[in-house]
């Protein structure tokens, strides 16, 4: 449970405005979780690409003529340069996505921080926003 409200003390009136803030907080928190999952996936993919690039450098000349590169469900053979080019392209794509996601995450985080300040200011111990 993300939000728990308890009030042993004086009751604080919850207004529609507050409710909207709480909803927004919950929603943003959900978005943030999703972005973090995707970032994890991208990190893994980038690591894979890097490993592949390193391994390419270790190949003997005769092996680097035809490197099976996975495209869709099949492997297509390319020479060393082509393969490196393909890897580079993949890497760029992921890095761009990562940059975009990190920006989004930053925005969401600062928004959540702001909401947290406002909500805790009003409800104090009566509200618990687990992020």
């Amino acid at each position: 449970v993300l939000i728990t409200m308890s009030s042993d003390k004086e009751e604080v009136q919850v207004t529609l405005e507050d409710q909207k803030k709480i909803n927004l907080f919950a929603k943003k928190n959900g978005n943030l979780n999703e972005i973090e999952t995707e970032l994890e996936e991208i990190k893994k993919a980038l690591q894979n690409i890097e490993d592949a690039g390193d391994d390419l450098l270790l190949l003997e000349d005769e092996d680097s003529e035809a490197i099976p590169y996975q495209l869709g469900e099949v492997f297509i053979q390319h020479n060393l340069e082509e393969t490196q080019g393909l890897l580079e392209k993949e890497k760029d794509k992921y890095e761009q996505r990562m940059k975009q996601l990190k920006e989004e995450a930053g925005e969401i985080e600062s928004m959540m921080k702001e909401l947290k300040v406002q909500l805790y200011a009003k409800f104090g111990d009566n509200i618990n926003l687990e992020a």
């Binding site: 939000i3 409200m5 919850v14 409710q19 919950a26 929603k27 959900g30 978005n31």
Partner: peptide, 25 residues
């Protein structure tokens, strides 16, 4: 739709908590 749904059940969650508190009081 999921975001919308989240709004709805967050509202319900808060309402539940408030009603409960009110009852106790």
């Amino acid at each position: 739709d999921l975001e919308y749904l989240r709004d709805q059940f967050t509202t319900t969650e808060v309402m539940l908590a408030r009603l409960y508190n009110w009852n106790v009081k």
